[in-house]
Design a protein around this nucleic acid. Sequence first.
RNA 1: GGGCAAGUAGCUCAGCUGGUUAGAGCGCCACGUUGACAUCGUGGAGGCCAGGGGUUCGAGUCCCUUCUUGCCCACCA
Length: 899
Amino acid sequence: MVERRDMAKAYDPKEVEERWYQRWVAAGYFKPDPDPAKPTFCVIMPPPNVTGELHLGHALTASIQDLLVRWHRMMGDATLWLPGRDHAGIAGQLVVERELAAEGKTRHDLGREKFLERMWDWMERYGEAIGHQHHVLGVSVDWDRERFTMDPGPSRAVRTAFVRLYEKGLIYRGARITNWCPRCATALSDLEVVHEEEPGQLTYVRYPLEPLAGETETRHIQIATTRPETILADTGIAVHPDDPRYTDVVGRRAIVPVADRRVPIVADDVVSLEFGTGAVKVTPGHDPTDFEIGQRHKLPTILVMGLDGKMNENAGHYQGMTVKEARPAFVEELRERGYLVKQEEHAHQVGHCDRCKTIVEPLVSEQWYVRIAPLAAAALDAVRDGRIEIIPERFAKVYYNWMENIRDWCISRQLWWGHRIPVWTCANGHVFAAVEDPMACPECGSTQLAQDPDVLDTWFSSGLWPFSTLGWPDDADDLRRFYPTSVMETGYDILFFWVARMIMMGLEMTGEVPFETVYLHGLIRVGREKMSKVKGNVLNPLELIEDFGTDALRISLVSGTTPGNDTQISNERLESNRNFVNKLWNAGRFVMSNVERWPFRDPMALLATAPGAEGTADRWIVSRANAVTAETTRLLRDFQLGEAARTVHDFLWAEFCDWYVEIAKIELREAPDEATRDGIRTNLAWVFEHTLRLLHPMMPFVTEELWQTLLSTADVNGVRPSPSIVIAPWPAETSARDATAEAQMDAVFEIVRGVRNLRAEYRVDPGRWVPATIVAGDDVDVMRSVAAIIGDLPGCRLRPVEVVSRLDAPIEHAVTIVAGGVTVYIPLAGLMDVAQELARLQREQAEVTAEIDRAEGLLARPGFVEKARPDVVVRERDKVASLRERLAKLDEHIHSLIS
RNA sequence: GGGCAAGUAGCUCAGCUGGUUAGAGCGCCACGUUGACAUCGUGGAGGCCAGGGGUUCGAGUCCCUUCUUGCCCACCA
């Protein structure tokens, strides 16, 4: 027998939350059920960057995933949620470099080895911090399976994937135009460059044409550029082939100003006829478009800028200057030498490094690339044919658009922190890739080997995450059991960075989709703005938890939201959800204070039948609980998490607390015997326990605390309940409803609302009891059974309540309520005013009449009865019938008041 | 230049495949506190669902269009 637990008057989230998490972990509840017969549910946690503390975005991801995971666990699936951490390549290196900078050092002062040691220290420190924060959030992950991208397992997966792609010819090395961040001193993929519009100048420059034989006057061609300093690297001029202005110069040569180089004028489709002068300088070394033009027309590539972002030896006396310095100086020289035509203000898109915001310079360098087209084709099919479902659906279109226009992926980074590219060159120049560090060149046996100094894009390892964490490339048990995983839940902002790459890599490496569903959540905003450290409006989840509790934070993050839509989080919302937690707690206190010994039975066996009392209200609440279970389950299945949360929230507050608890108080008081009382208590406990399980995935801590408390009173009577709500069964769906009880209670609610309304309107002293007579016609028996409830509910105060089928003699000075199919007479001596009563009834009469008109208008509308769904027609007809009945009664009362 | 989202009560947002009199939280007004809860209860005020057009028996929901805001993508230098 478990000792009965006491409940504190005030709920203390902190104390409760700290207590349960450790117990859950220790008990092993977060480990997947080993039973191989069970269906699996697997979520791989998106590895948070180990670049600092968790922010609200992480809390959002964690809350949604934990909701899904806990729900599936309760559904009986063998559930695995695998936690991970990411080394965050460039971002990670950047934070440590900043730390070094504060000490006045650079990574070069330390050297590669020492620097990497420092990186590892840092990662460990912050990895722990993140782990702690996840504990506080209550994530039900299997910590024993935690993975870090730089761990031996995932690292070997990275090498294996690289080697496979390399040997298949899908990875190549080449000198191509790349995005270069001068500050980070590394190449970047297209995705890591963020374009922002900036004011700038469009500089018009005239290039002399090389004179033709016999041509006496020097002709010029005018171009426009936003980056005049790159003129020094020009190797051509391009015009549109259909541009009549330039047909006669195509094929001739122009002389590049200052550089004094003769370059061909070529015709190319990409040149716009409208922009600038219609002629464009071609600078293959420093512009992606120009690089392609250069390729097509076999123009040479010249670099005037080095990897340090400064002008190089090809820039003549501009060597050593930064772009910022060189540009005005060069324009000045153009002016002096008569090449400058004009400069115009011109806003244009400038690429910045995603991480450090430095302006990115496109330049040609040797990099490693993934030939992406074949991977993208397979990834497109997987979504198109439905093997992967993206929620919300609209992001599938975004995905298609990106995949269809994808360009080769630059995967080499000139960083130190990351997975080293597993390619070696031997003394004899043989180049080869290998999974294990090689001792000798496989071709010539040379032992003089040099590994490529570059590391891989951090997203390369992330792309393997759904299977590298499960043991790939080995034939691991987890991989066999849990792959493909079930849901990939993450923010839409990394659809391309991560989701798309996982799909490509997953299909290529395993031949299977990495996950069946992609659920994309929105971003969290504070006020109107996106959270960012720069703006200083980052909300720390730990602080919010301190103030409101984890459960309140978690439900705030999932309720009232829609997949893929951004959400605002505010103190008001957090407060209202903290109040909800408090409401639940207090409802629990009420239940507990009444339930001495709860006859617990296996919850699975209890579903279809009302467990205890047979009263109308008791049958009603059980029927409603069943309906809410079905609805909540359906919504969760459809990933309508916000709606699911709202459904249970409203049931608990607006039905269970506002009505049933109040009714139960009355029933317990009025019950004729102990057996009846026991029935009511059982019912109370049953519905409450049921609701706790529905709420558990959304607010795990308070529900566990209450559940354990409730269970401590349970007379388990041979049944073995779950030791924790974490592994308790999800309430099963049942079609068991009690339509009669629901209809009868709806009538009760209508009457009660009418009474409260009337008291408020007549300003009856809230403490005063007044008698009432209910004229119920054929419903006299039902009304008698609920008369005490109607009389005693808060705000009613009717006593005595007499129920008759019809009135023998009129009641003097009574106000009347026509509601729920009955008439309630309330004599209000001293307060009743004929004129006021008449006005009130007439107002109601007008409302009912209007309503009848509307419904009859609908029914009379041509085509409605024939074309509308039958149930809609029936509903409207029923409505008209009951409204007419009500109207007749109102008319009668009005008539009697007048006469 | 292309695409997407949002525009619903004073504020922040729900509203699934079209179907009662459009909802919630917060805020506001009035009243209420001796045992679940003032982190509360009861009652109330407050919305031509951005504008216009269309489809339909029926539109917040579907289609077209305009406006406003935000975001994403893109090789007009």
